[in-house]
Design a protein around this nucleic acid. Structure first.
Lengths: 222, 222
DNA sequence: ACCTGAACACCGTTCAAGT
DNA sequence: ACCTGAACACCGTTCAAGT
């Protein structure tokens, strides 16, 4: 994890708040009230300081969010015993990252703010890339394979979390429901056929099935 | 596309601005100045009105963004001649959606605001679901397969667009670069091995390769 | 029915000054 | 070096009133 800008060598006014305190307090706000409520002003009052004091410890709000994800990953992403078989190792490593991130509803703001590059997540990336190489891919293709897995994983989380958010703050029919209600079976027969089951079908958690399909496809000889 | 709340039956003060004008003007702002600059206030002045007048034509800003995506899809998503072979049809349909959305840098705000359910995109969804069924999947598994493809596609766009944004507004080393510089080759040998090529490797457009792998995996007998 | 003016309750960030 | 006060330049949305 990159450290604060510069180590303290010369002396000046002693710091009243630390970067760690900033991150810890931000985490408490996010956990108890949601990301929306995390503002620099709110954080400053919570910490008993002024908005500007924060800018001595984090560059800006985006960096604060990245630090928050890093902190979350360090605390919750523990290394499991991975299977020896490389294909299974890839699947379990990816599924572990996915599970940790999916349990974290404020994640979307950060996924769209930076790549997942917390030090504690790198070990999982290593396992995936290494597993792909062990299965016969070149290092280059292995990196591309990892990226495909990451796109799939990040996409699943972004789509599902935002869908869940929409459901909670509103009872009106969603845009999607309206669209499906107006479906023309002559033009779009398959969609009309499954229209009634679309909502339950897409609510099912099929992350693992898709992940296995993707890994199988990445490893298939071509 | 869902229509405005209610048809005008009784008479009152004749409308000065229309929902269409609101969307068209919003599009112009987004195209010329970026999503960040699209605010209800800016839009109102651009249209020669007041912020509150807009709320008679769109429910709120989120609905405006969804309408904007719908408008974009209707204008740019034209149906190509698809291959007869179902597996190829799936790939081309998905790639066409991907291409249209990837060309649209403000898309992330909307992808995270709603599922892609513009009427003009439904035809592509139909092609993908139908192709999967023709290849032997049950309708249920075909819907799950489409979802996997959508997760992969949306994830690729979200990750890549946000990475590109970060690059433009900043010259300092990214968080990722710092992390890779501190890599311990003893602990993470594969990542250390590819560290120097990570940036160019991940900058490559490998959407199609990953898509083909995913489709192959979804269609493989299990 | 449609539009306006004024207000509410906020934002992130910068600047200049203090200790 | 670290912190403060005041300000800049904004937000989305609501309310009450006008035509």
């Amino acid at each position: 994890m990159p450290q604060p800008p510069a180590p303290r060598k010369t002396l000046g006014r002693p710091p009243r708040i630390s970067r760690e305190e900033v991150v810890t307090t931000a985490r408490r706000i996010v956990d108890t009230e949601g990301v929306d409520r995390l503002t620099m002003r709110r954080l400053a009052t919570e910490i008993g300081s002024t908005p500007m004091a924060l800018y001595h410890h984090v560059r800006n709000k985006e960096e604060l969010l990245v630090l928050l994800l890093d902190d979350y990953a360090t605390r919750t992403l523990h290394r499991p015993d991975l299977p020896a078989q490389p294909r299974e190792r890839i699947v379990v490593a990816a599924a572990t990252i996915h599970e940790a991130l999916a349990a974290c509803p404020w994640i979307v703001e950060v996924l769209t703010a930076d790549d997942l590059m917390a030090t504690s997540a790198l070990w999982f990336v290593e396992q995936i890339v290494d597993g792909l190489v062990e299965c016969g891919l070149s290092p280059e293709r292995a990196v591309h394979g990892y990226r495909a897995i990451w796109y799939y994983t990040a996409g699943e989380i972004v789509v599902r979390v935002t869908a869940a958010r929409r459901r909670t703050d509103d009872d009106r029919p969603t845009y999607r429901e309206q669209v499906f209600a107006d479906l023309d079976p002559g033009e779009l027969p398959r969609l009309a056929q499954v229209a009634d089951h679309w909502a339950p079908l897409t609510a099912e958690d099929t992350y693992l099935d898709g992940l296995r399909a993707l890994v199988d496809g990445l490893l298939a000889p071509r």
